[in-house]
């Protein structure tokens, strides 16, 4: 059985544990042994330790990676793009600057820990794409999406900078992998021209709430015009917070006139593989009943 470390991060376990539930369910259903990384901390988020200095960043990431190494894992998986970006960037920096790696290990050794750099960090959809494969995924689908039109959003941190990631789209400006997974589940995920646009969540959302929302509105409006999707499917939990939770608030505040249900790709995979909708979609805020009806209707 393939073993995969489940790296939780912050937003998923605290804000959207339904994604955590979905990842656990989906990975098990796809024959992974899911290993918890007890004691893991924040990746660390770009606005925290990376903004302190490079060594602090690397120490923070190495803490997490060393836990995975202790468990003899070859790879771990994240559901959050920031975690995927931060961990992989830190890995890259430590690889590139052995002196940093050495200092990191000097610090870690004070509590009996060690970072070697052996663990690969995947995000959820790349793990499925590379280590399960579309054909195998298709075979495991119990509730196909029945042509559900998905507006795919891989998320910036899952794409760039290309050089730091273990897996990626062939052309990160025309990403296909996430779309292909939606299609393997039986949906449609057509190309739209704002697919790589930033959703506005993150530091910008904290610093300039209203301004950041214009990014989301512009992206989604273009998407609606071009492909009129039934569901917004994101590869990153931050995109989910913006695409679902924040969207619900914006709707209440009268800032938008659309209503587009949104899920993390892990939720969609779990749903198609047979997970209980009440759990998978338990925390969804934008009404999603129509989508659920289409996929699981009568089941």
């Amino acid at each position: 059985m393939k073993r995969v470390g489940l790296y939780l991060g912050c937003n998923i376990p605290f804000r959207r544990p339904d994604v955590e539930y979905s990842m656990r369910y989906a990975l098990k259903a796809l024959d992974f042994e899911v290993v918890d990384l007890e004691g893991a901390a924040c990746c660390p988020a770009f606005g925290s330790m990376p903004s302190v200095d490079l060594l602090a960043w690397c120490v923070g990431s190495a803490w997490n990676l060393s836990i995975a190494e202790e468990k003899g894992l070859e790879y771990i998986v994240t559901g959050c793009g920031s975690c995927y970006g931060s961990l992989n960037e830190a890995k890259y920096h430590m690889e590139k600057h052995p002196e940093i790696k050495q200092k990191v290990n000097e610090i870690l050794s004070s509590v009996g820990k060690k970072y070697e750099g052996k663990v690969k960090v995947y995000n959820f959809y790349n793990l499925i794409y590379d280590l399960v494969g579309l054909d195998e995924l298709k075979r495991k689908v119990k509730f196909p999406l029945k042509g559900l039109i998905c507006g795919a959003q891989p998320g910036c941190h899952n794409l760039w900078p290309e050089k730091v990631f273990p897996a990626n789209d062939e052309n990160t400006f025309q990403p296909k992998r996430l779309r292909e997974i939606c299609e393997a589940l039986g949906g449609e995920a057509p190309w739209y021209s704002t697919i790589t646009d930033c959703c506005g969540m993150g530091a910008l959302g904290t610093l300039a709430k209203d301004k950041s929302e214009t990014l989301f509105i512009r992206k989604i409006k273009t998407m609606l015009e071009e492909i009129n999707p039934e569901l917004y499917v994101v590869g990153c939990s931050s995109c989910l917070l913006r695409g679902d939770n924040r969207q619900a608030v914006m709707k209440k505040e009268g800032k938008i006139d659309f209503e587009l249900p949104a899920v993390h790709i892990a939720q969609l995979v779990a749903l198609a593989l047979g997970a209980e909708p009440e759990k998978v979609l338990g925390l969804t805020e934008v009404p999603i009943e129509k989508v659920l009806e289409k996929i699981r209707g009568g089941a």
Binding site: W191, S193, E226
Partner: peptide, 12 residues
């Protein structure tokens, strides 16, 4: 910075 294909055939 970017040239993106729009589904209506235009290039943005």
């Amino acid at each position: 910075s970017a040239v993106d294909i729009k589904p209506n055939g235009k290039l943005r």
